[in-house]
């Protein structure tokens, strides 16, 4: 091929001299972009678009019926200076996250350790234990949970067999949040499956070396299993914490959407929902959403920062 013909073919391939990088990309990859179009529409129309819009709305007063009015930082100032419900919902959510996440992870790890002992019918048990994760956050289960923990529910009927008169777990502000924490722990299937995979990936040689050195099961767990599992613990902790902050359905159903009794189940997301769809304060609700995002982001960043001190990666 001569130098002239190479130059000509390069021009054809490259498109018109001086055309933009975008038009050249389009010419070269048009079929690919066409196939991606449905995803682009969904991503920009249903994800990026609403995210950007909500950021804008968080600086406005917007009641869905009239055009948004620019409010500057008013929503954020109100949130941090003059909103007792914001503080209450934050306190409830933090309490929920602080107790439900470690308890759920501990429970999931315990079950994973049991299942990892190589019992018969493991796939069946795995599926059964995973089931609550699929159903747990559903409306049906939340309603069922309300029946179980109601004043005349199954729990109290069971306690009555022993002569114990149980409280109405859901109506009593001392216990209502704990019923939601128990419901959350019951949905341990997802972290349990991940723990199980993590346990399976710990080389058997490590345990054999430890057994030759006379280590007890307890010492093996604390000195080998748990440290080796820290990458999985870290992953599960982040995911479950985010899930905890986002938790909505059970509180909505059990409290009838009010966060009652006495705001004891007023989760952050429930408060946000009420602001948006009960009181039509979309601007304020958007600001609440962005603050939640910031809290989750700060928590995640902090977790990654601390991970170098306690998460052990092999190579």
């Amino acid at each position: 091929m001569t130098a002239q013909s190479i130059s000509a073919s390069a021009r054809i391939k490259g498109g018109a001299v001086g055309s933009s990088i975008w038009s050249r990309a389009w010419e070269n990859h048009a079929p690919g972009y066409l196939f991606l179009l449905p995803w682009f529409i969904g991503f920009f129309g249903l994800t990026i678009g609403p995210i950007i819009t909500s950021l804008y709305l968080s600086f406005t007063h917007f009641d869905l019926l009239t055009a948004p009015r620019w409010a500057g930082l008013d929503n954020y100032i109100r949130m941090f200076t003059n909103d007792r419900n914001f503080v209450a919902s934050m306190r409830v959510t933090m309490f929920f996250v602080i107790f439900s996440v470690p308890l759920k992870l501990a429970f999931a790890l315990g079950v994973a350790l049991l299942l990892n002992r190589g019992m018969r019918g493991l796939p069946l048990y795995r599926a059964l234990f995973y089931l609550p994760s699929l159903l747990g956050a559903s409306v049906a289960i939340a309603i069922l949970w309300r029946q179980i923990f109601a004043g005349d529910g199954l729990v109290n009927q069971f306690l009555a067999l022993f002569g114990i008169v149980g409280p109405s777990w859901i109506s009593n502000p001392n216990y209502s949040l704990w019923t939601l924490i128990v419901l959350s722990i019951w949905q341990f299937g997802s972290p349990m499956i991940i723990f199980l995979a993590g346990l399976r990936s710990i080389p058997q040689d490590m345990y054999e070396a430890a057994s030759l050195e006379g280590a007890s099961k307890w010492r093996v767990f604390w000195k080998i299993t748990l440290p080796m599992l820290t990458p999985v613990v870290f992953f599960n902790a982040i995911i479950q914490t985010i899930e905890g902050f986002k938790s909505f359905t059970p509180a909505f159903i059990i409290s009838g959407g009010t966060g009652s009794p006495i705001n004891s189940t007023l989760f952050y997301t429930l408060y946000l929902y009420n602001e948006a769809f009960s009181f039509f304060r979309m601007g304020y609700a958007s600001a609440l959403a962005w603050v939640l995002l910031a809290i989750v982001a700060v928590f995640t960043a902090f977790s990654f920062f601390t991970s170098k001190f306690w998460v052990h990666y092999d190579d």
Partner: peptide, 11 residues
């Protein structure tokens, strides 16, 4: 015993 994989505790 010395193992093929060395079995050193990585943490």
């Amino acid at each position: 015993m010395v193992f093929q994989s060395y079995a050193l505790y990585p943490h």
